[in-house]
Design a protein around this nucleic acid. Structure first.
Lengths: 231, 231
DNA sequence: TTAAAATTATGATATTTATCATACTATGAC
DNA sequence: GTCATAGTATGATAAATATCATAATTTTAA
């Protein structure tokens, strides 16, 4: 990780709209002046479980995973987040320390805003408060409903689901490079590594996908969708 | 369900503290005057999936379950909520319609505040906004972390966990009446009804609990805790 | 009160998934 | 390049869980 040159280029910032739409100029300036932008390499730790929550972080570019490092060996991936999904929405307002860790699955850039400034903005600007709330509510909802969706599927359904998730939600392409290794996929869907590998092999044998190491090509999207829906 | 006599008795309301601590008198009055209190009998539907979200609801007394009615037969219980846990925190600020249903597990009383008034209070009162946010964040966090906790346990661990959940969190007593039938427990922990029943029988045979229909007495709490932790 | 329906219970069996063992393959360090 | 290490892959087996069948018990409705 390295800190990028920290010019206040909010004009070009993708998430400016959401944050600054309703905020008065003088507050924008305060936030801008204290904003820190950080660049992370693939694999870098962005947030570590247990550490104090000091800033309001959002993802500017890249891809990250949120996970529990758990006492047990097995980690558990909570969610894969892409830009526009805030990184640390879960506990920012309710806890002093992180309940989970975040690492970069791809080279990523994050924006760090001082949490106290954000809280002040919420205190002084109701519209801003409401839009943050809307976002928090949405992200939590998504995590909860996605977890219920995955939970009721068997392993075939879960693997199919996650392949379609990457194809449709993340890369918008039938051909993509998996940002997770097989063990991490297992940690995301709550099954063992071996069975994830086996299931991928079966999908390949059945002509649903092609596998080139970490690269996946979805051949029969319709059938894969069926496996996801009814599996 | 019947509407209770609707006097503005906020002075005696358990959750007044949280809501009104930071709110100016004139707003309290507006909310009070439009507040509706509703009484539900055990089994009554409080919120129905798909219906529009019109009010900000919190639970004054009783016990409720939030669940997906799902296309498939099997429902899935998201959370059991007791007073002080808001009922409809999940989607209130991010959606127009409910993503889940809520029914009363015990006779319950809910307070319904006009959602637009709440939003206005958020707009005009930053401290109030922050305390609502803190609560939302906390509830979402709890749901997510609890679901991860349950997910990594086998059926013995899950059943032990839920028994201890009722004993410690809900009833604060080793002897309690289960508010869920065996099928609903299964829906909560994501296992089949038969296996929940079987596991309860095993716990009884092993002397961990006593079972009298829906009533449970926890005999060996320590051992049950071990089963929950390591199962 | 009685019949019907739902719930609880248990056994037998099938299916799914995890675990263990063993290669093979790719990757990074030296 | 070579070695060590992590990741991928597959088979054999064990363990966990689901499914199916059936019966007893409790609850509900007429």
């Amino acid at each position: 990780m390295k800190e990028a040159p920290n010019k206040c280029d909010c004009e070009k910032c993708d998430v400016r709209e959401m944050f600054y739409k309703n905020v008065e100029a003088q507050y924008i300036e305060i936030v801008c002046n204290t904003k820190i932008e950080k660049a992370f390499k693939k694999g870098d730790m962005i947030i570590e479980e247990g550490k104090p929550i000091e800033s309001f972080i959002y993802l500017k570019s890249g891809l990250v995973k949120l996970f529990k490092q758990g006492e047990d060996v097995k980690g558990q991936i909570i969610i894969i987040a892409k830009p526009f999904d805030f990184v640390n929405l879960l506990s920012v307002f309710s806890d002093t320390n992180y309940n989970y860790s975040v690492t970069a699955l791809e080279d990523s850039v994050t924006c760090h805003l001082d949490l106290d400034h954000i809280k002040n903005m919420i205190r002084t600007n109701g519209e801003f408060a409401l839009s943050i709330m809307k976002k928090i509510s949405k992200v939590s909802d998504t995590i909860i409903l996605e977890s219920l969706t995955i939970r009721k599927k068997n392993i075939h359904g879960r693997v199919a689901y996650i392949l379609l998730f990457f194809a449709n939600q993340i890369y918008e392409d039938s051909y993509f490079e998996l940002p997770l290794n097989r063990r991490e996929i297992a940690e995301f869907i709550g099954k063992t590594t071996e069975n994830v590998i086996r299931t991928l092999s079966e999908f390949r044998r059945d002509g649903l996908i092609k596998i080139f190491g970490k690269s996946i090509e979805i051949i029969d999207k319709e059938k894969l969708q069926q496996v996801s829906d009814f599996g």
